[in-house]
Amino acid sequence: MMTDGTASDRPTAELSAAGVSIWLDDLSRERLRTGNLAELMGSRDVVGVTTNPSIFAKALAQGDAYDEQLRELAGSGAGLDAAVETITTDDVREAADVLRPAYDATDGVDGRVSIEVDPRLAHDTEKTVETAERLWRTVDRPNVLIKIPATVEGLDAITRTLAQGISVNVTLIFSLERYRAVMDAFLAGVEAARDAGHDLSRLASVASFFVSRVDSAVDAALEEVGSDAALALRGRAAVANAQLAFEAYEEVFSSDRWTALAEAGAIPQRPLWASTGVKDPDYPDTLYVTGLVTSGVVNTMPEATLEAFADHGTVDGDTVTGAYDEARSVLQTIEQLDISLAEITQQLEDEGVAKFEDAWTDLLSTIDDGLSAAKDS
């Protein structure tokens, strides 16, 4: 394992210099209280944090960092949903304070922390908007992002939330078609925010385009086909899909519609590469970092991926903008094998929502057990 080194020889510093903002896909009270998050800002060039129900469920299930607060909540008679919201927003608020120097140094571009609306609301536009507003007020930090899934019902919620001057992380994007719909929802929201008199320079958004799960699903389909031609495409769909997402981003954010918003002070909705932990041990453990280097994006990494890149990651220039033709060829060839990317990405969205709902149930169960134990102690 490498030492931290100087900024000039750290792979993470090289990645940052190439225009990729490094965010950590993890948060826990233990990480906050030990100073680990602040340490990663210095040693691993971390400038943001993303969370999800799975991350919080894992944090609550390990150690005793939440015991004192659980006792306080139990003593006050807090209900289960209120306890969940209090615990998670407290962690996000504290992380936002830790990351505030990065927020200030980048004029609000980075230094962001995300918190997700209850995933059980993924198909309920009205309740998603209501929850987003409440989370924004409760965390009460300018550098928070409210995560809203890119379901069909989520699209209008994204627009309506942004229209109120609330910064948004759009999550669970798998297909190019849905990504274009997300960008349209973003533009509509920023236009409404402008018309309502909000300061567009403070309104931030990222679009979380998921990567590794695409390879897992497409690889399974390729292996079912089983031909040499099919097997040669294993591990290529996810990066190609993300590369073409960036091509779509370049198109939308060079349009006249965007230019008018930029002139009013708006900042673009950056692509964020999510699900960047490599799931197939046959692939390089930094595949979804090195293969997606270009300026103006975010890569949110689980700690294992961050440490792998810090140890042996390489930055060999822009690996996205010159690869569009090859990426298109990869996806077209996969489609020619009677593998429907549209069906796969819709299945991944459905599974993604279900997984977060399951994690939320686990989180509720863990906190309920903690409140019960606190009452009995």
Rank of each mutant, 00 (worst) to 15 (best):
V225Q: 12
D228E: 15
A192F: 05
G189T: 12
A221T: 00
D195K: 13
A192H: 08
S208V: 08
G189W: 06
G235M: 13
F209K: 11
A196G: 12
A230M: 00
S201D: 12
V211C: 13
E224F: 03
R202C: 07
L231E: 14
R202L: 12
A221V: 00
A229V: 07
A185E: 06
D184A: 14
L231K: 10
A232N: 14
V218G: 03
E191Q: 15
V225M: 00
S212A: 15
D199I: 02
L233I: 10
L203C: 10
D215Q: 04
H198S: 02
A192K: 12
D219G: 01
L203K: 01
D219I: 04
V211F: 08
A230W: 01
R234C: 03
G235P: 12
L203H: 09
L233V: 05
E191V: 05
E223Y: 02
R202F: 07
A221H: 02
S227A: 04
R202W: 05
A232Y: 10
A185W: 03
A204T: 14
A196N: 13
R213W: 10
D199K: 05
R194A: 14
D199Y: 04
A230E: 01
L187W: 12
R202K: 13
D228L: 10
V206A: 11
A207G: 14
A229Y: 10
A185R: 11
E191S: 12
E224Y: 05
A221G: 00
A229M: 10
V206S: 11
L231I: 07
A232H: 04
V190L: 03
G197W: 02
A185M: 07
D215A: 04
A217Q: 00
S212N: 11
E224Q: 14
V211A: 08
E191I: 03
D215S: 08
L187A: 14
A185C: 06
A217N: 04
S227F: 04
A230F: 04
S205L: 11
F209D: 09
A230G: 13
L233C: 00
A217C: 00
V190T: 13
V218S: 05
A220D: 12
A188M: 11
S201F: 02
S216T: 15
A196P: 03
R213P: 00
S227L: 07
A220M: 02
G235S: 07
A207Q: 12
E191H: 08
D195E: 15
R234Y: 02
V225N: 14
L203N: 06
D199L: 06
A217S: 13
L233K: 06
V211W: 01
S205E: 03
D195I: 06
D228T: 10
S208I: 09
E223H: 09
V206F: 03
A221S: 11
L231Y: 07
A232Q: 05
R202V: 09
E223G: 06
D215E: 09
S212Q: 10
H198R: 10
D228C: 02
A217D: 01
S227R: 03
A229T: 13
S227W: 01
L222S: 06
A193I: 01
S201I: 06
A229D: 15
L203M: 10
D219M: 00
G226F: 11
V218I: 08
L187S: 09
E224M: 06
A217E: 14
H198P: 02
V211I: 15
A229W: 02
